[in-house]
């Protein structure tokens, strides 16, 4: 009797899962961007680095590419679209030059830079103030330099948000699943968050684990180079040595790992 009941429940459970997954699978038309978030075991093809970094070439950046980065990233990471602008969650988004680079005030900046959207995201700092501030180690720096969040440990004190000098962090002022209705398709492979925790860009740690570079770099049409800053032979180091790059507020001592190539004349945009 007991056994029968258990078998029945199993079967019922399985079919329920099947019923709910089937439409979800169909919904993911651009599933090529969705990768499993399972980080329990390291896969053979995982990308291993000592200090992951990014170079964003603003001379190649257009409104379209910038908007695409945001859309694709937010879809892949189930970042909610909420009606209340105050509750907004952002992982990567386009800013004006003077907001992104507050210490580079320049009235006579080139037209190209004045109008280029500057994608901003977590800078994966070498010396992250958010990690210093967190009272529970819910946000921490991994060996490869990526600053990550443990959503199950975060107590929602928002000290990390006060500490971040780049405004890169968002707080779930309500259940983010409320905002997934407007966000279709969602990605069942990546965990959704709960209310009351902080979240931010994770440099696509879930993709690195399966040998893929971050999504924004992949869809950037060559505007974003991703790689290991500690490897002098890496592509990213070659890009860095070939161009003049700047970082956001390096004077604060945070050591941002995201670099920007700024343009000269107006013929790029």
């Amino acid at each position: 009797m007991e056994k029968n009941r258990r078998t029945f429940l199993k079967a019922a459970g399985a079919s329920a899962v099947g019923l709910s997954i089937a439409p979800a699978m169909k919904a993911h038309a651009f599933g090529e961007y969705f990768m499993p978030s399972d980080q329990t075991g390291q896969q053979e093809n995982a990308l291993i680095g000592k200090h992951w970094g990014m170079v964003i070439d603003l001379t190649k950046m257009t409104e379209e590419i910038s908007a695409k980065l945001t859309e694709v990233c937010h879809a892949a990471h189930n970042v909610p679209k909420l009606d209340n602008i105050k509750h907004e969650i952002k992982w990567i988004w386009g800013e004006h030059f003077d907001h992104a680079f507050t210490d580079h005030m320049n009235l006579y900046i080139s037209d190209a830079m004045k109008h280029a959207p500057v994608p901003v995201l977590c800078n994966q700092c070498e010396n992250p103030p958010c990690v210093r501030a967190c009272p529970t180690k819910a946000t921490f720096k991994r060996e490869d330099g990526i600053v990550l969040m443990d959503f199950h440990r975060c107590i929602g004190c928002r000290f990390c948000m006060a500490a971040c000098p780049y405004g890169s962090r968002s707080f779930n002022l309500q259940d983010p699943r409320n905002g997934l209705e407007n966000r279709k398709p969602t990605n069942p492979q990546f965990p959704t968050r709960m209310k009351g925790v902080v979240e931010k860009c994770n440099f696509c740690a879930e993709r690195l684990a399966v040998g893929k570079i971050p999504l924004c770099a992949e869809v950037s049409e060559g505007a974003i180079t991703f790689g290991d800053l500690s490897d002098p032979e890496s592509e990213i180091r070659k890009v860095l040595s070939a161009s003049f790059t700047i970082r956001r507020n390096p004077g604060l001592g945070t050591g941002p790992s995201v670099y920007y190539i700024v343009g000269g004349g107006g013929d790029h945009a």
Binding site: R132, A133, C134, P135, T136, K137, A138, R153, C154, I155, G156, C157, R158, F159, F171, N172, M194, K195, G196, V197, V198
Partner: peptide, 21 residues
């Protein structure tokens, strides 16, 4: 003020001396 008040004891369970909080 806490987003997850039921996890308040995480501050004790994971004492973090470099955090002013």
């Amino acid at each position: 003020d806490m987003g997850q008040p039921i996890r308040a004891m995480n501050v004790i369970l994971n004492p973090t001396p470099y955090s002013m909080l």
